[in-house]
Amino acid sequence: MKDMLMMKDIRKTFKQGTSDIHALKNVNFTVKQGEFISIIGPSGSGKSTFLTISGGLQQPTSGDIRINDISFSHLSEKERAKLRFKEIGFILQASNLIPFLTIKEQFHLVDKVNKNKKTDQQIEELLTSLDISHLKDKYPKDLSGGERQRVAIGRALYNDPHLILADEPTASLDTEHAYEVVKLLVKEAHEKNKATVMVTHDHRMIKWSDRVFEMKDGELIEVKDF
């Protein structure tokens, strides 16, 4: 399987007064097509910094990041934004759905922003694959937390990205809905060959992972037994 995300010797240092804060320390990390990987660790360990840098939302202090063999390092901000739209689907702990748009309209808005020309049938097929087609004319307020996250997953998959980055996608869900969302992400990774990285503090959510890493004080360490 092809490497979809490669991070080589990534360091990120922030200034705090006269001190240097080393958020990431020499991180090396690779995710292949069809692989579901979890990143665990306590608050403040560097997980969120890791995810924003791996998705090109923040630049590392040093090191190289490649998405589908394209290096972020030599791109302008405009080129990085274009690469993100094309290659990466982001899922956040808050589904961030627009309250006054129906579920189907949420996808039409993505089309407008990204200048896509997808049909209602393509939207219907995606919603059906996520078992939420019956919700297409409802508003976010009418959906459960798990249903809203399914819509957020659908939105992340809508442009058929090669890489999915999920930042605490189960944080606001009860256990049943949390398991539902994680199993859906694993299914999408394995069946549609999506390289998927989930950052979580909840160790219960990692049992379906292909590999697990722990972030400790800016260092990424693979967990062998989970």
Rank of each mutant, 00 (worst) to 15 (best):
D217M: 13
S144K: 05
S19G: 06
I39P: 11
L24T: 14
D64E: 14
L83D: 09
M4K: 15
M215P: 02
L126Q: 08
A81Y: 08
G56A: 12
F213I: 04
K86Q: 14
K115F: 00
I98A: 05
A171G: 06
K47V: 01
L163V: 15
T200Y: 02
T30F: 04
K115D: 01
K82S: 11
A81K: 08
T30L: 09
F72R: 12
S38E: 09
K12D: 13
I221N: 10
I164V: 10
I98E: 04
E79T: 02
K12C: 12
T102N: 02
P60M: 10
S76W: 04
K25P: 14
G145I: 02
F36M: 15
E79A: 11
S45Y: 08
G146H: 01
A94R: 14
F107Y: 03
D131R: 14
R11A: 04
V186K: 15
H74I: 09
D174N: 13
V182Q: 01
G44W: 04
K2S: 07
R204L: 14
L135S: 10
K104T: 03
V212L: 05
I123K: 04
S48G: 12
A178T: 03
S129M: 03
G34L: 10
I37H: 07
K8T: 07
E87W: 06
P169R: 01
L92H: 04
A81E: 10
R84F: 07
K78E: 11
K192N: 14
D174S: 07
L185I: 09
M1V: 05
I10V: 09
F14H: 12
Y158C: 04
V182G: 00
V197E: 01
L83S: 08
K2C: 04
Q16D: 10
I153R: 00
S48A: 12
I37P: 12
H201W: 03
Q16E: 13
I88T: 05
D142N: 04
S133V: 13
V110P: 00
I39N: 06
G56Q: 11
S43G: 12
P161K: 06
L143P: 00
K207T: 10
E35D: 07
R155I: 15
H190L: 01
A189L: 06
W208K: 09
M215L: 07
V31N: 08
R150I: 00
Q58T: 14
G145V: 03
V186G: 03
H190D: 01
P99K: 15
D137N: 15
S144C: 03
V223F: 04
I39C: 09
D225Y: 13
I221E: 13
Q93E: 05
S209T: 04
I10T: 06
V27Y: 12
M6S: 12
D120M: 00
A166N: 03
L83N: 08
K82F: 11
R150V: 00
L57D: 09
E188N: 08
A94S: 14
S38D: 12
I153M: 01
A166I: 07
K141N: 08
G46R: 05
F107G: 00
